[in-house]
Design a protein around this nucleic acid. Structure first.
Lengths: 220, 220
DNA sequence: CCAAAAGTGTTAGTGCTACACCCATGG
DNA sequence: CCATGGGTGTAGCACTAACACTTTTGG
């Protein structure tokens, strides 16, 4: 039996959050778990992950980012029998989307780290967070957490939230705007709070960041 | 059905080579394929990869490096039916080990790139090579291709072979010996060819390279 | 005017590339 | 002695961190 489990990450209320489902049936009755389900007989793995994503959030993969994370196959990971789980990682913007899928009555966004999850989901979640943290360094995927247009300060908040660090706003602005293909100006400006209006940007076309944005050494 | 496929890489005759098996049964009769096999009912995925590695090469994973690569689940990837393949990547030293496992009569090391493989193994091999290339940048895994003790020039040949580049011997020496925990001097020296004797080194204890050894931009 | 946020300029330091140069061996 | 490969020093360049400073808004 092959299943797909999803680590859906977003940023809500200045915190990194993961979509979890409270289990209504044994095993692990009442515990939080990652959303997931079995792969259909003639279904591709990525397609299964997209389907689960749509069922849980109503979002398509194009709105954010979806990639394979790793595969977990400890024979004892599911007490009901042998289930190999292919985990996918998604980075999503904080959309005001009602989490209202078929079986999502008890789904909700929970701040990470979240411990005590069902099955081996603590491990899968930890792997997903670590993957997200390192991908922000050398890819422009931080924009997957943002709406279609965003300010540099909002992009910086993504980094600060995911990495749990403070970054210098001035140096960050320069690095982001000078990295080829990371962001493109839309030409518009907005005032988010008080202070000088900020330019709006959209995602650029690059898939790799050069130069990379390295995390401060303190977190290593 | 869940199978484990292996991308076993080594450096032989100044070239990056992969262990392939010539298929003796349909489908893809007579074509080269990656070694692999089905996961046993109560077997962990990593254990299955280790078992296959041992069967094909007689080597234990400790001699080199073994890690999960990715999982491939296109419903059409195997014409016999649905098989999800969890691919593992191994980096191994060039040991004079007879490739003499159970079904390895037709196994041999082949230079990469190797095209026209059975199933979706072209894609898996390409992914494995790309993973190996990028891992050399930020981890000390190049030492997995080396015997227990080696010279800096031998380590440099690993990088040059895998990256298909030339590196400046002087700068390479400095970077490797100054990166914390990459290599440790054994105190011994050897003369490999003519010229001044070289110091011997063994693997250090670091798992991440700092600073990283970046590939020249030409290959990107 | 003042506070706050956006954005620019400047300086000191780090790591990299390129290459001049010295060291230790075999022939 | 010379050729060959091992290893160190150093100058110029790219990028970075730290922070002074200017710009543009709201109150």
């Amino acid at each position: 039996m092959v299943a797909v489990d999803l680590v859906l990450l977003t940023i809500r209320q200045q915190a990194l959050q993961v979509l979890l489902i409270r289990r209504g049936i044994p095993p692990f009755l009442g515990r939080w778990a990652l959303p997931g389900g079995f792969v259909l007989p003639a279904e591709d793995l990525f397609a299964a992950a997209e389907r689960e994503l749509r069922e849980e959030t109503g979002l398509s993969a194009a709105a954010g980012h979806l990639e394979q994370l790793a595969t977990y196959g400890d024979p004892a990971r599911d007490p009901r029998g042998r289930v190999v789980a292919v985990a996918y990682l998604a980075l999503l913007p904080d959309l005001p989307v009602p989490v209202a899928g078929s079986d999502a009555a008890s789904a909700s966004w929970r701040p990470v780290p979240a411990e005590g999850l069902a099955f081996d989901h603590d491990r899968i979640l930890a792997d997903g967070i670590e993957r997200a943290r390192s991908k922000l360094e050398y890819t422009p995927l931080a924009t997957a957490f943002c709406p279609p247009s965003f300010t540099i300060a909002e992009l910086r908040e993504v980094y600060e939230t995911v990495w749990r660090t403070r970054l210098d706003p001035r140096n960050f602005h320069r690095k982001v705007t000078s990295a080829e293909g990371f962001v493109e100006p839309t030409g518009e400006t907005v005032i988010r709070d008080r202070g000088r209006p900020a330019q709006l940007f959209r995602r650029g076309s690059a898939t790799l960041l050069h130069p990379a944005l390295l995390r401060p050494a303190s977190s290593a």
